[in-house]
Design a binder for these strands. Structure first.
Length: 255
DNA sequence: TGCAGTGTTGCTTC
DNA sequence: CGAAGCAACACTGC
């Protein structure tokens, strides 16, 4: 793809995650201008980055390992960053929703995908969390998923965070007490930290950069557990679909 | 076999 | 304005 050609001669200075966006900060080795560039990747539904090794066979770039990368190169890899140290980074994406943007850092930073982002869930302090989340006149489930309020929480973690905090997903965010918002803030940090530690959730296609499934799928408190017993009170987990997204919760212990 | 459902987001419609 | 529908796409499971 084009962005691969555009990044020839660049070095990766650092990689950041901001909400659900992954930012590769790049600089050009041969230029004295010292301008930073960003390669932004949003994995959306089924995208995931894989790291593997490559070699040149004739003119063909051949992946060597890991096995998952090799299997996917002929199928779902739509983008490859080939590094001169023998490694490469590929973007696998079954449904092709993922987004890749490349440009000068100052421009990308001002783009709406980054400028509209609220603070990352793992960075936000309690006071700001309460101010931002508690002021919205929407359901708490909607607010948690709204990346302009707090970034980094998607459908799986929204359900699990609300279960952990014992808050009903369709409770109005405005009506939640400060004490409950604090519990929610703690729950969000706890669940997202755990999910990161376990390298994400692989109910379907998602894999970590080594091609291994993430471990959060085995933890999942409520997400995709409709009809199964609540781990806290034993009542059956419910699923309600709104605006095309399913939220899962325990109607007995989430108020 | 067909269709609802899937980790996301943004645009359109009412 | 908000809520809902739908589109992008490909596959799984009931």
């Amino acid at each position: 793809m084009k962005a691969v050609e555009k990044t020839v001669g660049f070095i990766i200075e650092r990689i950041e995650r901001r909400g659900k966006n992954i930012l590769f900060y790049l600089k050009h080795l041969g230029r004295s201008d010292n301008i930073s560039y960003i390669l932004l990747v949003h994995q959306k539904m089924t995208g995931h980055l894989l790291v593997g090794k490559w070699q040149i066979n004739g003119k063909k770039l051949t992946p060597l390992e890991p096995q998952t990368f090799i299997q996917k190169v002929n199928g779902y890899i739509h983008f490859i960053l080939k590094l001169d140290n023998g490694w490469m980074i590929g973007l696998s994406d079954l449904r092709k929703f993922a987004k890749v943007v490349f440009g000068e850092a100052t421009v990308i930073e001002q783009s709406k995908e980054l400028k509209q982002l609220g603070p990352d869930v793992l960075d936000v302090g309690l006071e700001e969390f309460i101010k931002r989340v508690g002021s919205r006149n929407k359901t708490i489930y909607q607010v948690l998923m709204d990346q302009s309020v707090i970034s980094g929480i998607g459908n799986i973690y929204a359900s699990d965070v609300l279960w952990e905090a014992q808050i009903h997903p369709f409770q109005s965010a405005k009506k939640i007490s400060k004490k409950e918002l604090e519990a929610l803030w703690l729950a969000a940090k706890k669940i997202l930290k755990l999910a990161l530690k376990l390298r994400g959730t692989s109910t379907s296609d998602y894999r970590d950069t080594a091609g291994e499934p993430g471990g959060y799928g085995e933890v999942r408190y409520v997400y995709d557990r409709e009809g199964m017993p609540c781990f806290r009170c034993g009542a059956k987990i419910k699923r309600i679909k709104r605006a095309g997204r399913s939220s899962y919760f325990c109607s007995k212990c989430q108020k």
